[in-house]
Design a protein around this nucleic acid. Structure first.
Lengths: 195, 195
DNA sequence: GACCGTAGCACTAACGGTTAGCTTTTAAAA
DNA sequence: TTTTAAAAGCTAACCGTTAGTGCTACGGTC
């Protein structure tokens, strides 16, 4: 029960991947709204219930690897070198993430997302989850020692930076501009010391 | 056609109000998820299609007067006294909004919202709409003259302040804390002058 | 006051995402 | 091998939402 040793896991992962690939392909070919769940399931040769045992909702099919995103952000906090400053670390991670999702190859997917209200909504609440996770990581860092509110706030601001930059005319420049503001906000929360 | 003169409008408004009141009552009595649209319509004595001609979705029944919220925020920008500073004006407006929705009388409604994922999602995307509206108001103010990105960013931050403070242990204090950060971020965007 | 145009509402029937209940397959453990 | 439980399947339904179609009554016009 504690040592899951192989084949079953591989098959499950394969099924999951096949569903995700099929879904994305159909969505890009004919539009997200024009493709039904029953159709995706049929094309991936699985039952509808199987599809929903792998993905919580139709929208989740599109944001298949959103956990990567979440982990990269928290990694930027928890995995940074000793005494490496928080904001610059987050800035370069967000820079990378924005570059990644404004790349030409990702364009059709994001166009699809922007065009579907359901997908936009889903992404928005995903971002809030990510902000909460990031806030927890920031609040847990003993080097930083900020209040819970300050941690949550900065986390939100960082996620906002990602979201705003992605939609800006010049994403890279927008990241820099917004992080200038975040840097200032962060400095304003520096706890007063007695040293 | 241009002079809507009375009875029809009153009847329509009455129907709308009756639906909203009935829905809210049922939702609070038995829980948002436990009450179906068909049931709300029956209790309000209208057809389901009528209900949907007044409200775009089930969630919209709960956020009936969200336009007030939006207008109060933009008013805080466009309607402030000459030379009155932007951030303090927004701060007191957000302070008022937070006080309003953390009042005891509003508690059951917000508890209901917090407990329903659908309602949370809906509120989240509502907030993004509000942020965009606010951003437009800020960008349009000639006294401020900030970039489009800076305007959007500050607008997001302000909406974040509202949302974070509402959930904080001490909402009023949280507003002050977050607005301290926003103030700093805003200062960082001050356009360089040649005076 | 009679006459249209149309806004508001009703009804039925359906569509699409999602879930519950129950059975079958199949990998892993004994 | 036998047992067990996870993974997958099928059916049938629930619920929010919408299309299609008509009826009714109000508002403006002659």
């Amino acid at each position: 029960m504690t040592a899951p040793s192989g084949r079953r896991e591989r098959k499950k992962a394969a099924t999951r991947q096949k569903i995700a690939d099929t879904a994305l392909r159909l969505f890009l070919e004919r539009g997200y709204d024009a493709v039904g769940i029953r159709e995706v399931a049929a094309e991936a040769d699985v039952a509808v219930t199987t599809l929903f045992s792998h993905f919580a909702s139709k929208e989740a099919l599109v944001f298949e690897q959103d956990e990567d995103f979440e982990q990269r952000l928290t990694q930027a906090v928890t995995g940074r070198a000793p005494h490496e400053l928080l904001i610059p670390a987050l800035r370069s991670e967000v820079q990378a993430l924005v570059r990644h999702c404004t790349a030409d190859s990702a364009a059709p997917i994001w166009r699809m997302i922007d065009e579907s209200p359901a997908l936009r909504k889903y992404e928005e609440s995903m971002r809030l989850r990510h902000a909460e996770t990031l806030a927890t990581a920031i609040a847990a860092d003993p080097e930083l020692s900020r209040t819970a509110t300050a941690s949550r706030t900065i986390a939100r601001f960082v996620i906002d930076a990602y979201s705003l930059a992605r939609e800006a005319a010049e994403p890279q420049a927008a990241v820099d501009e917004i992080f200038g503001m975040i840097e200032a906000a962060w400095e304003a929360t520096r706890p007063s010391r007695r040293t």
